[in-house]
Structure formats: C-alpha cells, structure tokens
Write a protein that binds this DNA or RNA. Structure first.
Lengths: 195, 195
DNA sequence: GTCTATAGAAGGATAGAC
DNA sequence: GTCTATCCTTCTATAGAC
C-alpha cells in the first residue's frame, strides 16, 4: 500500500504533516504530543515522519516557521509607515489578522513552554522582536509600552479560548480585538486622568 | 477547599516540594519537568516525592491549588461590591496583585498546556470562572467583554516575560497593569464596536 | 515515501528496607 | 521521610527492506 496514485501530490506530504502536528501541538502542547500521536492521526507509521524531519525539534521549527515569516513581514510593513501611532496600528491589525487566521499557530508560538524555550535561539525572531519593541516603545524607550504590547500579543490567543467567544461573528471579533489593541497601546499621557 | 479531596497539608516538606516544582514548571513547562528533575533540584530521590503525592497529576494540582483559592476569593470580594465597574475593578486589582506576587504561579496556571487540560475537570474552578465571566459580561451578557477579560488575564503573565520589564519599578508596574486592565475592561457604551 | 523491527534512554510508579 | 532497586511503558531515533 506504498503510494497509490490518488493520494497526495508530491511535496504535500510535509505540508500535511505540518498541519496535523500543529493541530495536536495546540491541543496537547508540544511535549504532550509524541511522534506516535502525530503518525497515528495521519494514518502512517512513526518512522515515516523521519523522512520529512530529522528530529522533533526540526519538526517544531518547521511547523512555526511560516509564523516567523509573517511576524517579520508585519515589522517591515510597520517600519515603512511614518508616525508612531500609525506603526503601532499596523502591528495591532497584523497580529489580530494572524491570530484569527490561525489561533493554533499563534498559541503554540506564543505560549507553549517547549517552543518558548526553543525560539530564543532563532536569531531571526530575536531581531524581529527587537524591531517590534523599538517601534512601540518609541524614541524615548518607554518600557511600559512593552508591557502593554506583551500583554496584548500574549493575551490574544487566550482570548479566543472560550467556546462562546469562538462562536462570535468573525468580523465583529476582529474589530473588537483591534479596538482592544488600540486601547492598550495608546501612547501614554502621564499626568492626565481619563479624559 | 481547592485542596484535592482526601489530602491534608503535611508540613514543611510538602511546601518545599511545591515551591521547587512550581519554579521548574514555570521554567520548562509541566511536561518538560520530570519527577527526576524536581527530586534532583531538591537533593532527594525520585521515590521520596511519592510520600507527598500519589501521582504527578496530584502534585500539579497541589502546586496550583492556592491559586484556585485566591481566584475564588477575588470573585467573592467582587460580588460583595455593587455596580459593575466597581466589581470589575476588584477583579483587575486582584489579578494584578496575584500575578505580581507570583508570576510563576499565574503563568503555569493560565498557559501551561498540561494544566489547561487538567483544570477543566476541577468544578470549583469552573464555578469561579463562570461567576467571574458573569461579573464582567453584566446583565446584558456582552460576550465581547469576555474577550477583553480573557485577553487581559491570559496576557498578564506574558507581559512580565521580558527581562527589561521585570526590572521595572514594582509599584509603577502594578499601577500600569491596573491601568491596562481598566482600559481593556471599560464597559462599552456603543451599540456598534466598529467605531 | 513508507514499512517493520528495534535500540537506547527516560518517564511514572511501586516494593520494601531503614 | 527518605532510600535503593526494579517494573513497565513510552519516547526519540536508527537500520534496512520494499
């Protein structure tokens, strides 16, 4: 039952693997998902996975790589804009778009302990994050803005966890999340009360 | 009350175990932390841990039990207040206090995949969460408020992840986080959110 | 690209001595 | 409360056939 004509086109094997792995990673966590689990879900043997990735670490990185690219893209887009508030807006809308496109991706990427430990070694991500942080902290390097940014991006995937929330209208949800980001990432006016 | 049924506090040994386990859970994730790791960190043998907890699941629940109690306490405090905004304020300040008292606790509790899968079975937590959600969604059950609430509480631990953020003045950080919560959880007065 | 079979390490958990 | 020793399972990864 090797590879009958009628199964997946060439090169799509890896894409399917990434897809299944991501779903299970989001559901049970990376360390809670064995290669056996993934293979069973795909209907192949565990050994078959090693044709696509040499190690589990490489599989994990392969799964989240597209998100690293998207993040870098958002940073580039934001830097092309002038004005801090406009740049921040690009970041917010970009992040909201990504999390709505794939909540699983974002969740695994932002909060899985295994991924969080694995990612800092990726210099491309470090660079993206620093550029992003510089964008929001601005010329005066307001570190508190970084607090708000982190709260927003790490809170995004969690905000969709509730089943009733997941059932909300997609467009309304998008608008509301963007509004949340704008509220959080307003540049601070230190001496004023709410006005 | 949130202590696992049939178990009673047993003294200093268990407290120390909880402490060490929590630290490692926050660092590497629950599934990334073996009983061997914990035992080694404590300078005892793996088997010694089984005097305190029968299984790893019970250890995990024992570690986060105090946080379940604190959460229930916050809900009770909030319900004693009148007026939705006042209640929400109690929730915000309570959450911020907890996360600053123990970031590790909050992080493991809110975002560790193993804990997230383990917790829904705890009916005490389900009750607390529903009461909390009712508080913020208000009499008209505005589900979007739940989005903001989830974004805030699940974003809180992530907001402290950055080393530069962790170095900020504690009192200022507390005030700023409370401000973040208030911005996010303002009751919406508009009938449309697209603004 | 996938299979069977298996090595080798690490995990959770138990038994029984002290 | 802690130890040593051990059991059984599961895990990642490899070897080699098809």
């Amino acid at each position: 039952m090797a590879t009958p004509a009628g199964t997946r086109p060439r090169g799509e094997g890896r894409a399917h693997l990434n897809e299944v792995a991501l779903r299970l990673f989001a559901l049970r966590g990376v360390e809670g998902t064995s290669l056996q689990d993934i293979a069973a879900e795909m209907g192949v043997s565990k050994a078959a996975l090693y044709y696509h990735y040499k190690t589990k670490d490489e599989l994990v990185l392969g799964v989240i790589a597209p998100l690293l690219d998207e993040l870098a893209q958002i940073v580039e887009d934001a830097e092309r804009h002038r004005g801090r508030q406009a740049r921040i807006d690009v970041v917010i809308t970009g992040m909201v778009r990504i999390v709505l496109e794939s909540q699983s991706w974002f969740k695994v990427f932002m909060s899985d302990p295994y991924v969080v430990r694995l990612l800092p070694e990726q210099t491309a991500l470090r660079q993206s994050w620093h550029r992003l942080a510089d964008l929001v902290t601005g010329p005066d390097h307001d570190e508190f803005m970084k607090v708000a940014l982190l709260c927003f991006v790490s809170g995004l995937p969690g905000s969709l966890r509730d089943p009733q929330v997941a059932a909300l209208d997609r467009a309304q949800l998008r608008d509301y999340l963007v509004e949340c980001g704008r509220r959080l990432l307003q540049t601070r006016r230190r001496t004023t009360h709410a006005g």
